[in-house]
Design a protein around this nucleic acid. Structure first.
Length: 712
DNA sequence: GGTGAGCTTA
């Protein structure tokens, strides 16, 4: 089943990107900024330091490398199924020589038949009325010769939280129990299956009242019930209560708690339990290791993930597929596709067969960093193996296509999906396709896809409407933007930070006459943002301090992942309106609030300006500030380094073939600046100390430079 | 009688 690529990304027509005009369209990147862990994770006891290189860090795999096709290896069974959990403790009424080989077989058969009848009884108890009459009448069927173990087996196979306590009561009344705690524990297990922590807690109180002492199993069951009920903090509470009841946590309790602490967001505690587990030589299995990798990944400590992986190998614990998948996912989130590829190769080498989670993680890893070809290769590999893709996998591939701007490929995959017998496009699918068209301002196609979505019965959601607004904005159709915005309000959808960011981005592309309409929308969507925008568009004379204070308050009120996008757009708006001073003010605020990090850097040999992830307006503003700083340094007689450089990044942003680099090249020429593109360093413009100094000296006063970079 | 896993988007 060959997959044919209709076009390569480079065959798309170049995006028009003139320097200063209303079509100034900074590639609007709403990528979340890397998560910065608030806790420093110290693992002093680890045999591997967090900075040590692990086997997966060696060497970078080329993007162009084909993904290994060597995936036909059969999966060796890592964990033979042990099916020996059922102990034979029932009585046999026919004498068989206990030493004969037939004896154990006989015991087993006899027990199996008893066990099956107990399971059947449990099943009827799951569906009967929760009354003593009904429950007891079923249990009478057990006969008079019941033993404690019968109660354990029945309750252990139950799932009805209303009848289970009545069953418990029956056995308590019928038998003199020697291990009552076990009956309580299996009843708690029923509540755990139903994620009913309330009932579990009530039963715990009841067992205390009856004088039954809880044990470690009691606690691990309740703790696990809490974490399955998405109440990890409750899980922590119960764990901390253990010693009050004379229970010392054991291996199993710790393994559960590493997970529960991780889910409760208490990463320090999770890791310190892990440290204690290692120091105490407790048993830690592959599942717990995968939990640890996930915890490190969530905290943004991606080297920590690799170290855990190395550590488990050092402890001779065999990774399983889930460990590999978790690691793959973490490397994707870390934006390290080459390491994701290494993990993938390693799991293949070790004989595992990739499953959907493996492929989904790989696709996300490639999509995030726009490794389009690699992503499409994953799709080809899955199709080549005849894999049945599910909706999520299709959606992940389409999201990847949206990330890298593969329109034709997305359409083909969408058609393939519609032909598939096992899954149908859902609202996510349509949302991705609408996004793909919107990012390229293909209004007709986006609208057609919207109609197709409505035809099959999906309501437009905030994702779809955000994309459409972006589409109309790019196509300069302000009235359609306003119409769509009103539709959002009519549908009762609350604008979120990203939605407002999109409106703001549209505004940076809106011709002057449309600005007041856009301001109105933004005011309705977010009054704080609306106010700052109004100050920029309508109030030239507002005091600097007041403007800064309002902008500061705005940045404090929005989520971290949109701050840079907002700041970029606001600066673009200022630059579009010839307000360089305001732009500088916002850039400075952005630096102060650490929205922008390390724009300028100085080493002994090189001074640099880093413009990656800045919008065009923000980058030009930063250049202006840098040039002024250099002039000041020259005036002050500061020693210049041998090299000065500007890094614009590779400029391969999706949907924009002309990145910052191309725009800067011509802009630097206009300024007569002696910076030249470095042949061996993509995205770098370099100059020497001598050339820089003579150029700075030849420039007029800094004020005139301002005029030079502004649109005429 | 006890732990326990990857699945999404602007």
């Amino acid at each position: 089943m060959a997959y044919h690529l209709c076009s390569s990304p480079s065959s798309r027509p170049p995006h028009d990107h003139p320097l200063f005009c209303n079509s100034l369209s900074p590639p609007f990147s709403l990528k979340p900024t890397p998560f910065r862990p608030s806790l420093t994770l110290k693992h002093s006891m680890h045999p591997f330091s967090l900075h040590s290189r692990t086997s997966l860090q060696i060497g970078r795999v080329s993007v162009q490398d084909p993904i290994s096709e060597d995936t036909q290896n059969s999966n060796s069974s890592e964990f033979p199924n042990s099916d020996e959990k059922i102990s034979s403790s029932s009585k046999s009424y026919i004498w068989v020589n206990p030493r004969s080989p037939r004896a154990s077989q006989f015991r087993r058969q006899s027990y199996d038949s008893r066990y099956s009848s107990l399971v059947r009884i449990a099943e009827s108890l799951n569906s009967c009325n929760p009354t003593e009459d009904d429950v007891f009448s079923i249990l009478v069927g057990l006969g008079e010769k019941i033993v404690e173990q019968d109660g354990v087996v029945v309750l252990n196979n139950m799932s009805n939280p209303e009848t289970a306590p009545i069953v418990l009561k029956y056995f308590q009344g019928k038998l003199k129990l020697s291990k009552e705690v076990i009956l309580y524990n299996v009843t708690l297990k029923v509540f755990k299956k139903c994620r009913d922590l309330d009932r579990a807690e009530k039963l715990f109180d009841e067992m205390l009242q009856r004088g039954v002492k809880p044990d470690n199993v009691t606690f691990s069951t309740i703790i696990s019930c809490a974490r399955l009920s998405s109440l990890p903090k409750k899980a922590v509470e119960w764990y901390e209560k253990m010693s009050l009841y004379g229970c010392e946590p054991d291996d199993v309790n710790h393994a559960v708690m590493i997970d529960a602490y991780g889910r409760a967001g208490n990463i320090d505690m999770a890791l310190s339990l892990y440290d204690r587990a290692r120091a105490g030589k407790w048993k830690i299995d592959a599942v717990t290791f995968s939990t640890l990798i996930k915890i490190y990944g969530m905290s943004g400590n991606f080297d920590g993930c690799l170290n855990v992986y190395e550590e488990m190998k050092a402890l001779r614990i065999k990774p399983n597929l889930v460990v590999y998948n978790t690691l793959l996912d973490a490397m994707g989130r870390a934006k390290r596709p080459w390491q994701a590829k290494s993990v993938y190769n390693e799991l293949i080498k070790n004989g595992f067969t990739p499953n959907w989670a493996t492929y989904a993680a790989l696709l996300r890893a490639y999509g995030k960093v726009r490794y389009g070809e690699d992503g499409i290769n994953v799709y080809r590999e899955m199709k080549g193996k005849g894999m049945e893709l599910n909706v999520t996998l299709y959606n992940t591939i389409l999201a990847m296509c949206a990330d890298v701007g593969y329109i034709d490929e997305a359409v083909e995959i969408f058609e393939d999906m519609k032909r598939s017998e096992t899954c149908k496009p859902d609202s996510w699918t349509f949302s991705s396709l609408i996004t793909i068209y919107s990012c390229s301002a293909k209004v007709l196609e986006a609208e057609a896809m919207l109609n197709e979505m409505l035809d099959v019965g999906f309501e437009p959601n905030i994702f779809v409407l955000t994309s459409l607004i972006q589409c109309y904005g790019k196509a300069n159709r302000t009235d359609d933007v306003i119409r769509t915005f009103n539709r959002v309000l009519e549908l009762g959808i609350t604008p979120d930070d990203r939605f407002c960011g999109c409106l703001l981005n549209v505004m940076t592309q809106t011709p002057k006459e449309g600005l007041s309409k856009m301001t109105n929308c933004i005011e309705k969507a977010n009054s704080k943002l609306g106010y700052v925008v109004k100050l920029i568009v309508e109030d030239e004379n507002v005091e600097r301090e007041i403007f800064r204070r309002e902008a500061h308050q705005l940045f404090n009120s929005i989520s971290a992942d949109v701050k840079k996008a907002y700041c970029n757009c606001l600066i673009d708006l200022c630059v579009n309106l010839n307000m360089l001073e305001r732009a500088c003010e916002l850039l400075d605020l952005g630096v102060t609030l650490e929205i922008y990090m390390d724009i300028q850097s100085k080493s002994l040999t090189q001074w640099s300006l880093h413009l990656k992830s800045l919008s065009l307006g923000a980058a030009l503003t930063a250049l202006h500030v840098w040039m002024n700083d250099l002039s000041k340094a020259l005036e002050n007689g500061e020693e210049f380094p041998s090299l000065l450089g500007i890094n614009t990044g590779h400029g391969k942003h999706k949907y924009s073939d002309k990145g910052l680099a191309a725009v800067f090249e011509s802009h630097l020429k206009e300024l007569n600046a002696p910076f030249h593109e470095a042949p061996d360093q993509v995205g770098w413009f370099l100059t020497t100390k001598v050339a820089a100094k003579s150029w700075l000296e030849s420039r007029c006063s800094p004020e005139l430079v301002a005029a030079q970079i502004l649109p005429s």
